[in-house]
């Protein structure tokens, strides 16, 4: 038998009325329990995402984040450029010495 096939039961159910009043703040408590169960099911990654979304929702946080990334990029670029510059300096100094003291490299 499939659910809904029993005519007598269907009639009884349609006639059935609940007369007792709902307990106070029933709706609010139901939603609260739903929220609680959803929160307990969230993974650490999910909660991280949720907190990220809420943080990036604030304009000041987003602007600070971009500013920090730009500053970091600039500092790393300058540092890397300076270290490359030092290497080029050492290379050219070595080339100068090799040019002026070329006889030293003869057998």
């Amino acid at each position: 038998m499939k659910p809904g096939d029993d005519k007598a039961l269907n009639e009884a159910l349609s006639r059935w009325k609940v007369d007792s009043p709902l307990p106070p703040r029933f709706r609010e408590r139901v939603w609260g329990r739903i929220a609680e169960s959803e929160a307990s099911r969230t993974t650490p990654f999910g909660s991280l995402c949720a907190s990220l979304v809420s943080m990036f929702g604030r304009r000041s946080f987003a602007v600070s984040c971009i500013a920090i990334l730009v500053m970091m990029g600039l500092l790393v670029g300058l540092w890397h450029g300076h270290s490359q510059q030092r290497q080029v300096q050492a290379l050219l100094a070595g080339r100068y010495v090799q040019t002026v003291a070329s006889y030293q490299s003869l057998p």
Binding site: I66, L69, M72, G73
Partner: peptide
């Protein structure tokens, strides 16, 4: 926001590197 931040960081890295070099 992260894509924009990283793109600007890459641009500022390039700028800093070229300036120092």
């Amino acid at each position: 926001i992260l894509t924009l931040g990283l793109t600007l960081a890459a641009a500022s890295y390039t700028g800093g590197f070229c300036f120092a070099m």
